[in-house]
Design a protein around this nucleic acid. Sequence first.
DNA 1: GACAATATACCGACCAGTCGGTATACTTTC
DNA 2: GAAAGTATACCGACTGGTCGGTATATTGTC
Lengths: 184, 184
Amino acid sequence: MPRQSSKDHIIDAAEGVVLEKGAAHMSLDMVARKAGVSKGGLMYHFPTKKSLLQAMIGRLVMQFYTDRTALLEKIKPGPGRMLKAGILTALGPNEKRDRMGLSILVVAANDPELLKCLKDVHREHLKEMTDSGLDFERAAIISLAADGLMLSELLGFSPYSPAQKKKVRDTMIRMIEELEAGKK
Amino acid sequence: MPRQSSKDHIIDAAEGVVLEKGAAHMSLDMVARKAGVSKGGLMYHFPTKKSLLQAMIGRLVMQFYTDRTALLEKIKPGPGRMLKAGILTALGPNEKRDRMGLSILVVAANDPELLKCLKDVHREHLKEMTDSGLDFERAAIISLAADGLMLSELLGFSPYSPAQKKKVRDTMIRMIEELEAGKK
DNA sequence: GACAATATACCGACCAGTCGGTATACTTTC
DNA sequence: GAAAGTATACCGACTGGTCGGTATATTGTC
């Protein structure tokens, strides 16, 4: 009786471990135990640790695009539409995705091959956001600020209160609208 | 014959290892070998790995403040002075400090105690930058964008050419001046 | 001779990946 | 349609290696 999917089940467990201990402390034994399979069983599906991490990254990226697509529908058309969606997705309330993302990023930072997946996706996303006729530098600054806020939030660096964060987010959206107005 | 300072000498070696292999792969044996001392010698000065990392972070932070102070002198007075200095320091050409910073950050991200040092410094620095009478949200966005650019640069995520980076940096400065003008 | 500084040898924990094996299902062949 | 063969899924013990930290000597200096 094949489960829904053994691989998915293992990835679920791996996510659990990462959320509890951080990706740097995720060992294969822990994932196997959490998934209720043996080490060998795990290795059957993911022959190396890297292959497991890659699968986790893949799921994470999909999640981001899903969230963004959902948001996109609620935003009025205009040159800054994609930029707005990107910012609201990145700064949105997907706590789990965010914590995973940081942890994985921290691990990927030491492995060029893993980093490349993320890099490519990020560039693609960036291109979509800034290739829409807005003033390039200012659009870039806004999207960079979203990255900065997300990261400092995740690292616990952010000194901003929730109210301040909301204001900052609103100001970003307003700045995009100023750019749209300026371009007309 | 006490060297200039054995501790400094060891930290130099540790920095070398980090620059070559990344902080995640910095082992005490490697640092000792590179410093030309035995492991015991190293452990005498830094009883734990964490204490060594803390010393490295301390040096890094001092370096940042030194760089910023040097820059500060070249910037005309005005409410956005500190913000400008912070941005130019963070985006400045201190390659070594930057690479070290990323590597250390990646390691510190998994240790709340290490992270706290960085967190405190960062908040202090942020406060200095945004407590100068400028529009709060917009000043915050600019400083966040600098963080974002620095990090994506370090991770190799940045798709911007050097020329584009320069333009972005210049635009940040111009935006600060717009804020200064708006506040008068 | 006391104390700071440095050296050598070693321990125990952890961990990725290997390997020989088992159990079950699906397919082929006669 | 039963036996033989084969692919899939999984198990758990083991290995080889790394690394942080300890224990204990040895040397140099005042």
